[in-house]
Nucleic acid binder design. Sequence first.
DNA 1: GAATCAATTTAGAATAATTCTTGCTATTGG
DNA 2: CCAATAGCAAGAATTATTCTAAATTGATTC
Lengths: 142, 142
Amino acid sequence: MQVKPTSKSANPGSSEDASGLRMTRQRQEVYRVLLAQRDHPTANDVFMRVKDGLPHISLATVYNCLEVLVEHRLVRQVNFEREPSRYCPNLEEHCHFHDQHTGVIHDVKFKPGVRLGDVLDLPNGAVIEDVEINLRGQLSLA
Amino acid sequence: MQVKPTSKSANPGSSEDASGLRMTRQRQEVYRVLLAQRDHPTANDVFMRVKDGLPHISLATVYNCLEVLVEHRLVRQVNFEREPSRYCPNLEEHCHFHDQHTGVIHDVKFKPGVRLGDVLDLPNGAVIEDVEINLRGQLSLA
DNA sequence: GAATCAATTTAGAATAATTCTTGCTATTGG
DNA sequence: CCAATAGCAAGAATTATTCTAAATTGATTC
C-alpha cells in the first residue's frame, strides 16, 4: 500500500553518528554511563545507573543499547567465565585482569610492538577477527 | 535388599587417582569420552556420548563430573562469549581459536619461550593464577 | 502541520545453560 | 557389620539473556 519512494526513510542523515548509529536518548545515556564510570559494569549495573537520568528505561532496552553499541564497536563486551557480561568503553587494544581479591577488573595493555603472530603458533591461514585475553589472579602487595 | 556385593560393584579397590579424585564409573566415562574425541564438546555433547556406555547417567551427574574434573585440573573449561561451556582434556598451556566458518575450535600453542610478562604490561605485583586466550576468526584457504 | 513508516522502546513472557534440592545408593574407615 | 561420607539421579529452581507483541518515536515527505 505504500506508494512511497522511501528513498532514505530508514536512516536519515543527521541522526547518525560517525559509526552509523542512531543516537537515541537511551543509547546516549547508556554510553554516557559507561564512559563516566569505567569499572566494567554488568547490564544490570548499567540499568541501575541509567535510571537516574531515564527513570522509565527498561532492562530490555539497556540490553538492546549495549548490543548495538557493541555491534558498532563503541563498546566491548567482556566475559569472564560464565559470569554476567560486563561492558567496557576502552577501545584501545587491551586485555583484562580480574583481581579475585577485590573483584576489580583492570585493563591491561600489550607491551609496545607485540604482535599475536609473534607469540602464538597460529594455524596456517588463520585470520584473526577478535582476540580476548582474560587473566585471573591477585595483586600481591609484597 | 541386596546383602552387599561390594567387591566389584562400582568402585574397585584403589579409589583415588593421583590427583586425589575418586574415580567413579561415571567420572571415568566422562573423562574417557573427553579423551576419546577432543573436539571441545559441551556438557550436553558429553552427556550424549557417555550415554552409550552408561545409559542411566543423568545430565546433572555429567555436570558434577565435569566440575570435579575441572577442579582437579584434569580438564579445562573453555568459554567462548556466552556460549555453553566446552571441555578440553589438553593440559598443555594453550589457547583456543574458534573458526567461525566451520565452528571448529583449534588448540593453539604458544611459541617456545614466550612469557606473559614479556608481552603484557601487567599491573605491579600481579600474580596470575589463570590465563584464558580466545581467538575468533577463520581459516582462509588462500 | 499531518501522514507515513521503519526503527526503537517497553513490559512481560520465554529460553536455556547451569545449579540446587532431595532422597537414595555406594563406599570407606572403624 | 555399622556409621559416616561421598556420589548419583530426577526434577525443580535459578538467572542472565533473548524474544514477542504492542506502543512510541521521530525523521521525512506531503
